[in-house]
Amino acid sequence: MESILHKEYTVVQDDYVNAGKVSSDIKSTLAEIGISPKVIRKIAVASYESEINLIIHAWGGKVFMDVNDDGSVALVFKDPGPGIPDLEKALTPGWSTASEKARGMGFGAGMGLPNIQRVSDEFNIESSPAGTTLSLLFRSPV
């Protein structure tokens, strides 16, 4: 499996105004190269939730997208901290540590990571105080 298209983005902590821009670019890029709308919709859910996590929970971070030669799409979200103290709780639907500010805008439902996990074909998350890396893979239907 080899990458045929690679893109990188930077997401800034607390930048609610630009939230969704990265996901929107990922979505339009994948549409342009002909990834199926059904797969794109799943990717849009996962990328938006992950982008929001970088904004409201992490100290910002980087997003890496690769389209592979087998039609699968890999997304990696990497942040510099502060890490998720209890991953099991973070993956529990309804559990949230979002701030009042974020909740006031309708974030913090505790459905972010569960949503991401549900729509991804492969889901891997590693977290320590030095940062969190979320790796996702979406396969294209044959």
Binding site: A19, S23, M105, G106
Partner: peptide, 14 residues
């Protein structure tokens, strides 16, 4: 909800 993130969600969700 009336703020920019609503627009982002609506567009991504089509």
């Amino acid at each position: 909800q009336v703020h920019a993130n609503v627009i982002a969600v609506a567009l991504l969700r089509e």
